[in-house]
Amino acid sequence: MGPLIPQGVIDPAWNNVFALLIGLAFGFILESSGFSSSRKLAGVFYGYDFVVLKVFMTAVMVCMIGLLYFDYMGWMKLSSIYILPTFLYSVIIGGVIMGFGFILGGYCPGTSFCGAVIGKIDAMFFTVGLYLGILFFSVLYPVFEKIYHAANLGPVQVHDLIGIPAAWFAFAFLVAGLIAFFVVSKIEARAKKVEY
């Protein structure tokens, strides 16, 4: 049955409407869970606040379970979902850069906009930097191109790589996630309270 728009159940003209609605909801939730504060994100690295980890891990777990059930029920075929190809080096290098950006700036691209619209000056600077980064990358693209496209593994999935059924991988991931939540809550309890 699903995905609804590509299968023609809903007219593609609605794309932008949904994008707007989902975007609004996303922004609202980011703001209301306090992500528009740079201390919140940086907290993960300094060990006093793990909300970011919890929120995103939970989102991943819920989404994963939901999709697997949808697939099982035949509501939405997993195969009809586009999986981005993995470019190994780009992912590693990009991940390192992004990680440093998180610690230094205290924002990720989405939350920086949240921060900017509620008037946080550091977020505004971050946003400007974001665009400078995009410009920088675009201009120097020919230089990076080779490494950008290197080590293309195609649209691989972890459970295919290690050769276990998707359900088992999902379950293992769940357990790992729940353990991680438990551990970080202990760390959090020990850390000094930080005022935002």
Partner: peptide, 13 residues
């Protein structure tokens, strides 16, 4: 969550 995850193992696709 664990229950739902366990359910996946039972209803393996």
């Amino acid at each position: 969550l664990l229950m739902l995850g366990g359910g996946l193992l039972v209803f393996s696709p």
